[in-house]
Write a protein that binds this DNA or RNA. Sequence first.
DNA 1: TTGCTTGTTCGAAAATGATCGAACAAGCCG
DNA 2: CGGCTTGTTCGATCATTTTCGAACAAGCAA
Lengths: 103, 103
Amino acid sequence: MSRFHHPPPEAFELTRMLHALSDPVRLEVVRSLAANGEQTCAALDGDRPKSTMSHHFRVLRDSGLVETRGERTAHMNRLRREEVEARFPGLLDAVLRPESVGR
Amino acid sequence: MSRFHHPPPEAFELTRMLHALSDPVRLEVVRSLAANGEQTCAALDGDRPKSTMSHHFRVLRDSGLVETRGERTAHMNRLRREEVEARFPGLLDAVLRPESVGR
DNA sequence: TTGCTTGTTCGAAAATGATCGAACAAGCCG
DNA sequence: CGGCTTGTTCGATCATTTTCGAACAAGCAA
């Protein structure tokens, strides 16, 4: 039973999602989730302080990109691929392309 | 002879472009350029102050999304479709989709 | 229970970004 | 030339973001 708010796809806002993706740290998280599947917050912090990461996960959740399941102590994060694809077709694919990476 | 700086596609940065697109005013400009072709700054301000629009155009130029030709007094703006498509395939299409509009 | 782990929330500080008036530059028209 | 038009640049202000330590909550393990 997650204590977090996860908007339904109809409520996704493009500008909000683009803003969520426009931060290097968050984009890295999204890419890692896409490449490696569900992961805990700890597995995704790049040695950054937990409070900082907690903030980024919240932005990702609010935008609709990520779902956090608060089961157990360690929270699991999942990229909401299908939902995002349904609402903004092609967006995630474009952002996740290997060619788009690196600078 | 444009006095503006327009980065070449190799220099486009994804996070910078996503940030440029994440502002409602700028997204509206990009959509108008996509739908109606080249336009002057005046045609694209939504009754907003010129200094404000000038700022947004600069962000759009720096990201690589827009090219401003400074010929004549009135500057012409063009969406750099091909360049953006070559560097970040699918990104513009996703953002310009009608379904993605409206909230 | 006590302690360790994982993560959130709060609050503050620093950085970044958006907005807009005023002054300025340059082309164009009469 | 003088004035109008189109936009840029500068500076200030205000709002939003980012970052991070400290305190807190809850599960889990010994």
